[in-house]
Amino acid sequence: MKEKDLLAELAAYLYACSNSETGRTPSERELAEHFSVSRGQIRETLAILEAMRIVERRAKSGIYLTTHQASVEAMALFAKAGVPLDPIQIYETVELRKIHEIKAAELACSRATDENFERLRGILAASEARLAAGEGLARQDRDFHLEIVRATQNSVFHKICSIYYVMGERRLPIYFNDPARGQRSHAEHLQIFDALVRRDGNLAQALMSAHLQGAESYWKGLIAGGEEATKALEKA
């Protein structure tokens, strides 16, 4: 089994099999038997999960799940492995993404290159084609926003914001399941793009803020929408 596959699968398995009261998980030996790998491989993978604050290994006691202390990278790993995130964490992530991307829009106005603009034009063209075919914009929405972050020419900024989209990979298709929402989002993308081309940082920030307010309100509404809505959010 590849190291990356084992990391995600082990995280999901520990989450599913941990004791609901104590957080204790199966032992190294049991985990090695379950995944048909050596205890050394399990130990190395657990070390990574411990560094991500997903588990804690206690001497003479065992392995314990500590997801409430998990890092942002750990939350992305959980999302990729299909482990449901806490609804409040989802909303907080959307809120943080909004803060970062508003700043990205401002920086992109002064730093974007011709190559960035060309890629944005290509993404917008692909969005139009998908809308015409009655298809969702989950991938194009991600690509548009991350290209703006890329246009800041700050690679660390791009890596941080990319994590948000890994965490939202399963939820974006749900958000764009509504055709009207896709049309509205694309129209707003066009306005943001025009502000970027004109190098108008203040306008780009304002447009990005208004654009992301829709997503923030959507997830906030789900969280406040009662038990059924919360269950739907947890499955997302």
Score class of each variant (00 low, 15 high):
A8L: 10
L14P: 04
Y15F: 15
C17G: 07
S20H: 05
E21Q: 14
G23P: 03
R29T: 10
A32Y: 05
H34N: 12
F35D: 04
F35A: 11
S36K: 10
S38E: 12
R39M: 06
E44L: 06
E44D: 05
L46E: 11
R53L: 15
R53N: 13
I54Q: 05
R57P: 09
R58L: 09
I63V: 07
T66N: 14
H68G: 07
H68P: 05
S71H: 15
A74D: 09
M75C: 08
A76S: 11
A76N: 02
L77G: 01
F78V: 06
A79N: 14
A79H: 01
K80D: 14
V83D: 07
P84N: 04
L85M: 07
Q89G: 05
T93P: 10
L96Y: 11
L96Q: 15
R97I: 03
I102M: 12
K103I: 12
E106A: 09
L107E: 13
C109Y: 00
S110Q: 08
A112N: 03
E115S: 05
L120H: 00
L124Y: 02
A126R: 08
L131D: 03
G134A: 05
Q140N: 14
D141F: 08
R142M: 08
D143R: 07
D143A: 07
D143T: 06
F144W: 03
F144M: 00
F144T: 00
E147W: 01
E147Y: 07
I148Y: 06
Q153M: 08
Q153A: 09
S155C: 09
F157C: 03
K159I: 11
I163W: 10
Y165V: 06
V166D: 15
M167L: 12
E169Y: 06
E169A: 13
R170W: 05
R171W: 06
P173W: 12
P173E: 05
P173G: 15
I174C: 15
R181Y: 10
G182F: 07
S185E: 02
H186D: 09
L190W: 09
L190N: 04
F193I: 01
F193V: 01
D194V: 06
D194T: 06
R199F: 03
G201A: 03
G201T: 06
N202I: 14
Q205P: 02
S209W: 02
L212S: 05
L212R: 04
L212N: 13
L212Q: 01
Q213C: 10
G214P: 09
A215T: 12
W219S: 01
L222E: 00
L222N: 01
G226Q: 02
E227M: 07
T230I: 06
A232G: 05
A232E: 11
